[in-house]
Simulated scan of single mutants.
Amino acid sequence: MSRKITIKDVAKHAGVGIGTVSRVINGSNSVSPKMKKKIFESIEALGYTPNYVAQSLRTHKYKNIAFFADISNPIFAQIAKESQIELEQFGYTLSLCNIGEKDIANKISSFLEGRRFDGIILSIPKEDDEELNESLSNIDIPIVTINRDLPNLTAKVLTDYYSSVKEAIIYLLSLGHTNIALVGGNKEIRPTREGIRAYKDAYLIHNRVPNQALIKNGKFSSESGETIFMDLLPDIQKGYITAILSLNNQMFYGILRGMRKAKLQYPKDISIITFEDSELMQLLDPPLTVIHRPIKDIGKSIVKILIKSIEEPEQIEEIESVVIPTEFIIRDSCRPI
């Protein structure tokens, strides 16, 4: 089945910006006759059929944004909340769709069918889904991704995992820990890749070579976190592994459950650090050392980029990604050895 020709293809063929093509299709008088002729020739050559629904979206007729994520992760629910608060200031509503981990392309297309949206906020479980990436390339409304590197989607909000993970590992190494387990999700997504890169670089700064076997990956679930912990348990009990850094809060809950079952305490038996700060992390006894992500700032940045993409489509190719800084907060869940 041949790929659907999009406005992006027309812009590339004509050697102009997407916004210029959009203005010509919408009958704007701001484009010269010579340029209009060139664009219409590209439309005819490529066999492009304008998506009039998408055009009406760009006139803000619907004032609705679609948010696609696996909302079993409570962080995405928080990001959705902060995005909605920000969107309300611009008169938009947010429609949330839980895409889970499988059959993502069909879930997204089914959700979009029969509904009208001005833009999309997106975070998917993996970046190498060819069917999904092809499907996304055929969508003619702005898409902002969260912590994902996807083909042809340049508008994105990223979290600086690297800096704080490196700082956390250096901190543990300075306390005397040499065998630190790094627990994360799918290695084919940006957050895990950046976490692993930071982990390795921190060891290099201390002139050490990390044990690759201590980099553990699984699903973003407490069950997976507990399974990984149980696999690590014999080496923890032997005193070989003395610290764990979890890149995911859901997996961390499983690590805590595994510790309880094994009757281990932190930091006495194992030092631990995790992502995401909350009142619970501060109330645990002892309070947890964490890497904090400013969820409110993430939500605001997503909306800022998305609104700009909707209101200034001619600038969409020039919109730069935003990197949100993280903060490493030291509390009492790690001990020197």
Rank of each mutant, 00 (worst) to 15 (best):
N207M: 07
H206R: 10
L256N: 01
L232Q: 03
F229T: 03
T227H: 08
K261E: 14
L264H: 05
G195Y: 04
L247V: 14
I228K: 13
Q265S: 15
T227F: 03
I244L: 06
Q212W: 09
A202I: 06
Y253E: 15
F220N: 09
F229Q: 04
G225L: 00
L233S: 04
K200V: 04
T242R: 08
E223I: 06
N248K: 01
A262H: 08
I228Y: 03
P234Y: 12
I255R: 07
Y203L: 06
P210G: 00
G195L: 11
S222D: 05
A213D: 14
D201A: 08
E194M: 10
R208H: 15
T242W: 07
I228G: 01
D201S: 05
G225K: 01
L232S: 10
R257F: 01
F229E: 02
K263G: 08
D231N: 15
D201C: 00
Q237M: 15
M251L: 04
Q212A: 11
L233P: 02
L245N: 00
I196K: 06
Q250L: 13
I215W: 12
P234C: 10
T242F: 05
F252D: 07
I255V: 13
I241W: 00
G195T: 06
A198C: 00
Q212K: 13
F252T: 02
I236M: 09
A202E: 02
I241R: 03
P210H: 00
N249R: 05
Y203M: 04
R193K: 15
K238I: 06
E194W: 03
I196V: 14
D231C: 14
I241M: 01
L204S: 10
A213I: 05
M259C: 00
G195P: 02
Q265L: 12
K238L: 07
A202M: 08
Y253F: 15
A198I: 02
G218Q: 03
S222Q: 12
L214W: 07
S246V: 01
K216H: 13
E223T: 12
A213C: 10
I236R: 01
G225A: 00
I205N: 13
L256K: 02
N249T: 10
H206Y: 11
Q212Y: 03
Y199M: 09
R208A: 13
G195C: 07
